[in-house]
């Protein structure tokens, strides 16, 4: 945490707005994420947290404001420039989104081959290494339908890492998993967090936030209500709305929908 405050800003949200038609989803967010930071974004469903990270890699277009990556404006980027930006940002989806017609290894190797221009041999060698790293060294020739949810998500993380990104974005990576599979995915994410890659994680896994996050950002109705280190966020001085959210998260009778 201490040296992170010294590192340069990597992602800067500048009065970011997003609305679908007339429905506002993000209503003016200013937020800076520094190189090497692990930031957890949480909040009730519909608070705009997924939209916020989908704006970073241009899966959603900004309605107003700007997002700077490494000091460069990304508003209005498209075509080849947007694709170059996306190669620097890994994205892990809630539903994994592995390509159904390709094996695990081929899923990981596709973008390195087609976008970075690696040879098949190079790309598959790198894929094998990444599969080892997520603990699936023996599953390279399996198709997604032959893998459990937890295994699919670990392949998806390896796929995101294959482009050697500077930033990893996670969109509720464990929400679609059965409880017994959440641990294996969190373990991979923990090892990534310790490797000091910049991570922005939308999640309800407060254990992960408490243990590994440098900061926890609490979003509600499209604005940032709290932005604090975990000890303060989970401590006595946290925002009252965040406290209510946390208590609902812990009480199954008030479970918030994913």
């Amino acid at each position: 945490m201490t040296q992170d405050t010294l590192s340069p800003p990597l992602i800067e949200f500048r009065s970011v707005h997003k609305h679908y038609g007339t429905v506002p989803v993000i209503r003016g967010i200013d937020l800076t994420i520094r190189r090497g930071e692990v930031v957890v974004i949480c909040g009730p469903s519909g608070s705009g947290k997924s939209t916020l990270i989908r704006l970073v890699n241009g899966l959603e277009r900004l309605s107003a404001g700007d997002i700077l990556i490494d000091g460069q404006s990304t508003a209005g980027l498209d075509g080849a420039a947007l694709r170059r930006l996306r190669t620097r940002i890994g994205f892990v989806f809630q539903q994994f989104n592995l390509y159904g017609h390709l094996t695990a290894a081929a899923n990981i190797a596709l973008a390195p081959r087609k976008v970075l221009g690696l040879t098949d041999a190079e790309a598959f060698r790198a894929a094998a290494t990444l599969l080892e790293r997520v603990g699936l060294g023996d599953k390279g020739d399996r198709y997604p339908s032959q893998l459990s949810g937890g295994q699919q998500q670990r392949v998806a993380i390896a796929r995101a890492l294959a482009m050697r990104p500077e930033i990893l974005l996670f969109d509720e990576p464990t929400s679609a998993l059965d409880p017994e599979m959440i641990g294996e995915v969190l373990a991979v994410m923990r090892s990534l967090a310790e490797s000091k890659i910049t991570m922005v994680v939308v999640t309800h896994e407060m254990g992960f936030a408490r243990e590994l996050a440098d900061r926890v950002v609490f979003l509600d109705e499209g604005v940032v209500l709290d932005d604090a280190p975990p000890e303060r966020f989970f401590g006595a001085t946290g925002h009252p709305r965040a406290k209510r959210f946390l208590s609902q998260l812990l009480s199954p009778l008030h479970q918030v929908g994913g």
Binding site: G100, H101, P144, G149, D178
Partner: peptide
């Protein structure tokens, strides 16, 4: 069913 969909 199941093609391209990644159920658990």
């Amino acid at each position: 069913a199941g093609e391209g969909r990644h159920g658990l």
